[in-house]
Design a protein around this nucleic acid. Sequence first.
DNA 1: ACCGCGTCCTGTTAGC
DNA 2: TGCTAACAGGACGCGG
Length: 263
Amino acid sequence: MPELPEVETIVRELRPIIIGRSWEKMDVYLERCAIFNDVPNLPLGKITAVERRGKYIIIYLDGGYKAVVHLRMTGKLVWHATKIIHSKYTRTVIVFAEGGFLTFEDIRTFGGVHLYREEAIVSALTGLGVEPLTSGFSVSYLREKLQKKMAPIKTLLLNQAIVAGLGNIYVVEILYRAKVRPDRSGKDVKELGLIVEKTKEVLEEAINHNGTTISDYRRVDDKTGDFQNFLRVYQKENCPLGHPVTRFKQAGRTTYFCEKCQK
DNA sequence: ACCGCGTCCTGTTAGC
DNA sequence: TGCTAACAGGACGCGG
């Protein structure tokens, strides 16, 4: 569900709320959504930073620990300043010493909050590819990653080990703007400059609109994003030029594209 | 090594 | 209307 722009929105909203607050404990309502990795369920210090890497949220604590949160399909972080409103889907709750609660809610329970010692190497993070909004995401980087790949460009852009943070919605939108068919083999795609440019463009626009709310994604204050109003082909019948949008499955995921606009 | 499929869950929607 | 099957924005493990 949440992809890079949604996670970035959440991180930006979390920072002013929780940085400087003291982590008291984590109350667990569903075991698999709260993994402690031998970290004690005790005060872990003050929050010093909240960062995003791909679709992961990393919360750093000055007691020598860190929390890694992934929302997967339906996860939400919701801030409660005074008292918790429990939902049917509240899976774990971070309690702060000064007051305030950060609840992790997740219908499908794929996501979770994982605690680590600060120096722990988190394999889910070390395996990630470049951040698409940095200079590391360039034509030469993409060329190196795609030049020998038989897999379709859509599937390759979804691969977090190549680019960190893209999901189904944004890859569909990026390929439409880059005018590249999603079923072309990675090695055959020469429009790498366009893909790099449109990736940055779509992600930046989406961040400026606080992400895309199709169904479940919500911000920390439970508000929705707005970028769903600017999608051009994802879940559309027609593209902005009025051509019919084709829909098919690639590696189990629904792809939308325009046969006239994308070559 | 690469690539696609099945799987973890639950809620919603489309179709009969 | 009511039931059922398919589908949903992610990521990982497995097997071909």
